[in-house]
Design a binder for these strands. Structure first.
Length: 727
DNA sequence: ACTACGAGACTTTTT
DNA sequence: GTCTCGTAGT
């Protein structure tokens, strides 16, 4: 069967375009990845390109893996030699191959954002910079953003004192990174961009090789990534770019959807193809999405349609508060699950992570299995970071960040005082902390001894011991040895929550084994460095619990690229979605609207929109009105599931906040109070005596009330356990 | 040197 | 509400 069969005319046209640069405007669910991968397969199959001559770049590791998998499925070729990966992954590959030309040490390490922030804080302290006036986070943002614009400090024109100072710090930061042999994410890109633009031989070599460049999610590329592509493409290579300006939701981190606008001109793209047929959603859902996104001015313009029918109307639900909203979602999920919809085929989306808690709580109480995306990723866990820090020190002891992380973990009695001294010495000698520690140990050998030196000395000895022991071992053995002998294992064995951490450390060894299997060759020395780069570039899965059928909870951002039978978009309130903080940013509202567009287009069959009048946020109740995005969807596409709109909520009017939902069935709108507990109610407690209920939360077995006792003060009590009696 | 408590933050996120 | 960070106390 031909790889081309089943493509619609526009898809076919895109896949089989003659050798030229082209832009494919691919709407949500229009088969964008399929077009991209089929194009690659077609180029190879028809002999227009060799696998070695193709470079395909995506934004996430997940997308890169997906692409490789699809290509392998279509063609019987070894994809190993192909350059398919993320911008960062490919740049890392380039820099490793030409580290000397790029001016980097052979074993340069990659810092993730947390490492970078730690380094910034450390170096600001050493320079005595006021971190009130120049918050480290802001400097980090400045550095990354400037790099993503393709600019070094020397190229920045600072207009005011503040940015001049930031830029000064940027320059100093780069110097420090160079000194320590570490590279941040943006540096990978900028460094390889500079390498190619400076070094004509290399540039021509790679231009000669990659005659076909394919780009996924063009709307998410930064200016630097765009320049990088342009540089690599030169005059003769073709760039086949796929993107959707309406799904550009990462402008806040430097993505520039404007790259889509300038692409035609900059790359001499002769053709723009629109993929507008959607294979994912029913008509009403698409109509809603189209109507919404039409409110945006800055668009290339595109209208999704489907051959499937209209389907159901969207369901709109309004509640009095976030608990009821969660209750409603739980009930609907249960009902749908009863009707045979897989839990994993339903998703609850929200604008910000903080909203997940109420939902989790309700789901937990209702015994509905769920999986939350977000939060700590595997390689970001404390114990993993610690283990990696030891490994980094084995690869390169001059890595100050790694040293600081573990010099006193497990505790070795090296406190801030000793560290300060060590840092001073390093500064004086203009050397790394490791070198300073080393020279200390040597001094000590000449006879001087204090209690403080003992700790550092012990650490130096440990690292040297580890280095010696690990020479010649395989990667797994190295990690096993380090976990065992660094003291990490012992440390966690003694802790009550240590079991999980130990398990993760075991998992790290497995990950290393898997990594070795996947990568083709390489000595064990390089293997360690490669693995560390892998750990930084690919932080791993968000959460365990794969495989089990569970309801999916995630932010709208993380839902991009996914699809579900049923989608709940919760918290559709002004201030939350669109988020109030987005409204001050230029183009912020339009980005929020695109975010809503992404959310809507995740649904295949059924789509719920919900919002609530009150919501607990940051420990305070906020009163909200419905999101403007709800109004922007035509009424005739929606069905109000409840008619609560003008019904005075008996339970939750503002003045008369009432605990009557406690124990009540959810989420019946007009349910009568089924328990006697109310705010303002006088109660008696066997131990605390008399008091008044002042607040309440939860329901059923989770219900808690806050009681102001005349003698004992204010306390939260679980209704299920506290022996309260009405008085 | 380490631990505990309090103040302040807190949109979205990949690499 | 909950997490992180920095300082004060043991």
């Amino acid at each position: 069967m031909s790889i081309l069969s089943g493509l619609n005319p526009q898809q076919l046209e895109a896949v089989t375009l003659p050798r030229q640069s082209a832009l494919v405007l691919a709407g949500a669910g229009s088969g964008k990845t399929r077009v991209l991968t089929t194009r690659i397969a077609w180029l190879i199959q028809t002999g227009q390109a060799s696998p070695m001559g193709v470079l395909a770049v995506t934004f996430t590791n997940k997308a890169a893996k997906e692409m490789l998998a699809r290509i392998s499925a279509m063609l019987p070729i070894n994809t190993r030699g192909m350059w398919v990966g993320t911008f960062h992954g490919l740049c890392n590959r380039l820099l490793r191959a030409h580290y000397r030309d790029a001016g980097l040490p052979q074993l340069f390490q990659i810092m993730d954002s947390a490492d970078q922030l730690a380094l910034i804080k450390r170096f600001m302290k050493s320079l005595n910079v006021d971190d009130e006036k120049y918050p480290p986070k802001q400097l980090q943002y400045f550095i990354n953003n400037t790099k993503e614009q393709g600019l070094r400090a020397a190229q920045v024109e600072a207009l005011d004192d503040f940015s001049r100072k930031l830029n000064e710090l940027y320059a100093a930061y780069d110097e420090l990174c160079q000194h320590e042999g570490v590279v941040d994410f943006a540096e990978l890109l900028l460094r390889s961009y500079e390498l190619l633009s400076r070094n004509e031989i290399l540039r021509e070599h790679y231009r000669g090789r990659f005659q076909h460049i394919l780009v996924d999610e063009l709307q998410d590329t930064s200016r630097l990534q765009y320049l990088w592509l342009k540089l690599l493409a030169g005059r003769n290579n073709t760039v086949f770019a796929v993107g959707d300006d309406d799904q550009s939701i990462y402008a806040f981190r430097g993505a520039s959807a404007g790259n889509m606008l300038s692409f035609e001109q900059d790359f001499g793209a002769a053709t723009v193809i629109k993929l507008e047929q959607n294979y994912r959603s029913h008509g009403n859902i698409l109509d809603a999405a189209n109507a919404l996104i039409r409110h945006n001015k800055a668009r290339l313009g595109k209208n999704l349609w489907t051959a499937a029918g209209h389907g159901e109307p969207l369901r709109l639900y309004e509640t009095a508060n976030d608990l009821e909203e969660a209750g409603f979602i739980v009930d609907e999920v249960k009902a749908l699950a009863g009707d045979g919809v897989e839990l994993s085929d339903m998703a609850v989306l929200y604008r910000s992570n903080a909203q997940s808690r109420v939902l989790e709580h309700a789901l937990f109480s209702a015994l509905v299995p769920y999986r939350v995306y977000g939060g700590l990723r595997f390689f970001e866990r404390q114990e993993i970071k610690h283990a990696l820090a030891y490994l980094r020190l084995i690869a390169n002891p001059d890595d100050d960040g790694a040293l600081l992380r573990v010099i006193n973990f497990p505790l070795r009695g090296i406190g801030s005082r000793s560290l300060e001294q060590l840092q001073e010495e390093a500064l004086e000698q203009r050397s790394s902390l490791w070198q300073a520690a080393l020279s200390r140990t040597q001094n000590k050998a000449r006879g001087k001894e204090t209690a403080q030196k003992k700790g550092i000395e012990g650490f130096v000895a440990l690292i040297e011991l580890l280095r010696e022991a690990c020479a010649g071992l395989t990667l797994q053995e190295v990690i096993e040895h380090v976990v065992e002998h660094s003291g990490l294992k012992q440390q966690y064995q003694g802790q009550k929550d240590g079991a999980d951490r130990l398990e993760n450390l075991g998992e790290l060894i497995n990950a290393a084994a898997g990594f070795v299997n996947e990568s083709a060759e390489g000595s064990s020395q390089n293997m360690l460095v490669d693995f560390l780069a892998h750990a930084a570039l690919e932080a791993g899965e968000r959460q365990a619990g794969e495989g089990t059928d569970a309801l999916q909870l995630m932010t709208v951002h993380s839902a991009k690229g996914l699809e579900f039978h049923t989608v709940f978009i919760s918290g559709l309130e002004e201030g939350l979605f669109p988020h109030e903080q987005s409204l001050v940013a230029a183009g912020g509202l339009e980005e929020e609207r695109r975010l809503m567009y992404v959310a809507l287009t995740r649904a295949q069959r059924r789509l719920y929109l919900s919002f609530s009048q009150n919501r607990m946020l940051h420990g305070q109740t906020r009163y909200n009105i419905a999101s403007r995005f709800v109004q922007e969807i035509p009424e005739n596409l929606m069905q109000r599931v409840n008619t609560r709109l003008n019904v005075q909520s008996s339970a939750f009017s503002v003045e008369n906040k009432d605990a009557s939902v406690l124990g009540a069935q959810l989420p019946t709108l007009n349910s009568q109070p089924s328990t006697p507990w109310r705010i303002g109610q006088n109660v008696l407690h066997p131990k605390f005596g008399a008091g008044v209920i002042v607040n309440a939360e939860g329901r059923g077995s989770d219900a808690r009330v806050q009681v102001n006792f005349h003698k004992a003060g204010v306390k939260w009590l679980a209704l299920e356990y506290a022996k309260l009696t009405p008085a």
